[in-house]
Amino acid sequence: MRFTLNAREVELNVAPLARLLDVLREDCGLTGTKEGCGEGECGACTVLVDGEAVCACLVPVAQVEGAEVVTIEGLGDDHPLQRAFMDEVGAQCGICTPGMILTAITLGPRPSLAKIRRGLAGNLCRCTGYEAIYRAIHRAS
C-alpha cells in the first residue's frame, strides 16, 4: 500500500480493509486523528484525502492507494488556523480540534458564516457551541 502522507511517500504492509483511522494512529503513529464515534457522525477523525475532508473511520485504507493524505500533523505547528484556534479559544477539550481545523481548510478563503456552518456540519463539538470556532476561522481568513 503506497500513498502520500503529510507530503511524504509511505509504503505500508497493512490489510486493505483496515480503517484508515487505525492505520494512521497505530501503524503510522499519528495520534492527532481522533476517534469519537466510529460511524462517521462526529468528524473527530477528519483527514484530507486529495484535498477533501473525509472521516478516516469510514475509509478502508485501500481507498487511499496513490492518494495524498494530510493529517493534523501535516500542518506543523504554525498554520494560520492553528494560531487562530489558539487566539480565539476555538479549542476547549481539544478532541474535535484536529478534525475541525482540517475541515476548515477546505472552506477556502474568506468563507461566509453560512458557508462555515454548512462546511462544519459534520464535525461535532460538545464544548464550544461552535461560536469560538467561527471566530477562529474568520480570524484566520
Binding site: T31, G76, V89
Partner: peptide, 21 residues
C-alpha cells in the same frame, strides 16, 4: 485578560496526548 491557553498549542497541533494515544 484572555491570555493564551496553557494547552492551546498541544490541542491545535494534535500533539496533546489523550488516553487512547
Amino acid at each position: 485578560q484572555s491570555v493564551p491557553r496553557k494547552d492551546g498549542i498541544g490541542k491545535a497541533t494534535g500533539q496533546a496526548r489523550y488516553a487512547d494515544d
